[in-house]
Computed example of a mutant assay.
Amino acid sequence: MNPPTESSPLESGDNLDGQADELRQEIARLRATKAKLQQEQSDLSQSIGNLVSETLGELERRRQALQVEVEKLERRRDRIQKEMRTTFAGVSQDLAIRVQGFKDYLVGSLQDLAATAEQLDLIPEAQDTPAPSSSPAAPVSPEESPDESPAPQFTPSAFQEQTQQIRRIIDQYRTMPDYYGPPWQLRRTFEPIHAKQVSNWFFTQGGRGAMRTMGSRLQNILVASATVSVLRTLYDDRLRTLVLANSPERLGEWRRGLQDCLGIDRRDFGPDRGVGLFEDPELLAQKAERLTGGGWLPFIIIDDAEEKISLSLLQFPLWLAFAPDPQAAQSAADKF
């Protein structure tokens, strides 16, 4: 067996130098790897930062866009709710007025029909009815047949005393309104513009003519009520007011308006009572002829919704027609 050989000092130094070189190379590689990893980490951090920034920006833009859309939807919701409240309230009120007007007209018509039926003689006369005696007929009382008198004229030269009375009544309505007066007396505030219209109808038009609408049916009813009240003061129960309107709703408004302004009730409405309501001008004209033949004094009121006035109505001594405002009619025509 050979004994171990001992390495020389020179060979040991070379080994150490080789190991040192390997260590230095390894350290260099590790440093390079470290630098590469640090660079990759930096790039990754930057990429993540850019991605987060872009994502946050996109989310912020989407949030702002959604906020704008939400605000638009809220404004639209508020507008729709407002329109619904306004439109529904308006339609409901208009529908309620129409229904109530038709109800009033229908109830009044049924009451008039019942009253007329009660006055009919439904029992047939016996065949052996004795012939009437030759004795003179009993005089008719004034209540059964009103006295016939000439057609009214309201010119100052014709009836000076009546003219003064009419002016006095109109002034009283204008300056001293009585809200709790007797039936057929005006119970509402009477402005100078209303007094001017009524005076013009009496003294300029002589109780026969048209006047421009006052702007609303309620205002027209007020003027017509004042006219009825004056005529009622002059002619008492002999006056019969006949109102013409082309729908049950409008007749219902006239019924309520006259009741309110004159303090009358349903018992004063009917074909043979103080106020008659008509949709057909020919039927109204026939009724006015019968009243005139019986000694009554018909006063015809024509609603402003009537486009034409029947010539058969112009033969009577007292009529008042409300004419539509031409400017309003033109504006309505322009819309179409």
Rank of each mutant, 00 (worst) to 15 (best):
E71R: 15
K72Q: 15
L73G: 05
L73S: 13
L73F: 09
L73Q: 15
L73T: 12
L73H: 10
L73V: 10
L73W: 10
R75I: 09
R75L: 15
R76Y: 04
R76K: 14
R77P: 02
R77W: 07
R77S: 14
D78C: 02
R79D: 12
R79V: 08
R79P: 00
R79Y: 06
R79Q: 14
R79N: 12
I80M: 13
I80N: 10
I80D: 04
I80K: 10
I80S: 12
Q81D: 14
Q81R: 15
Q81V: 14
K82Q: 15
K82D: 11
E83M: 12
E83R: 15
M84C: 08
M84Q: 13
M84T: 13
R85A: 10
R85N: 08
R85W: 02
T86E: 14
T87S: 15
F88D: 03
F88P: 00
A89V: 08
A89G: 03
G90S: 15
G90I: 05
G90H: 14
V91S: 07
V91T: 08
V91F: 06
V91R: 09
V91G: 02
S92C: 11
S92M: 10
S92F: 12
Q93P: 00
Q93H: 12
Q93N: 10
D94G: 06
D94C: 03
L95C: 04
L95Q: 07
L95N: 06
A96Y: 06
A96R: 14
A96F: 05
I97G: 02
I97R: 13
R98Q: 13
R98E: 12
R98F: 05
R98S: 15
R98P: 00
V99C: 04
V99S: 09
V99D: 03
Q100F: 04
Q100A: 13
G101N: 03
F102S: 11
K103D: 05
K103V: 03
K103C: 02
D104W: 02
Y105M: 07
L106R: 09
L106N: 01
L106I: 02
L106Q: 07
L106P: 00
G108L: 09
G108C: 10
G108K: 01
G108H: 01
G108Y: 00
G108D: 06
G108M: 12
S109P: 00
S109R: 08
S109K: 07
L110V: 05
L110P: 00
L110S: 03
Q111D: 08
Q111R: 12
D112Y: 00
A114D: 09
A114Y: 02
A114V: 04
A114W: 02
A115I: 02
A115Q: 10
A115H: 06
A115Y: 01
T116M: 08
T116K: 09
T116Y: 03
T116L: 12
T116W: 04
T116V: 04
A117G: 04
E118G: 08
E118D: 11
Q119T: 11
Q119S: 13
L120F: 01
D121E: 14
L122E: 01
L122A: 02
L122H: 01
L122Q: 01
I123L: 09
P124W: 00
P124L: 05
E125T: 05
A126C: 05
A126H: 11
A126Y: 04
Q127P: 00
Q127G: 05
T129D: 03
A131S: 14
P132I: 07
P132Q: 13
S133L: 15
S133W: 09
S134K: 10
S134N: 13
S134C: 06
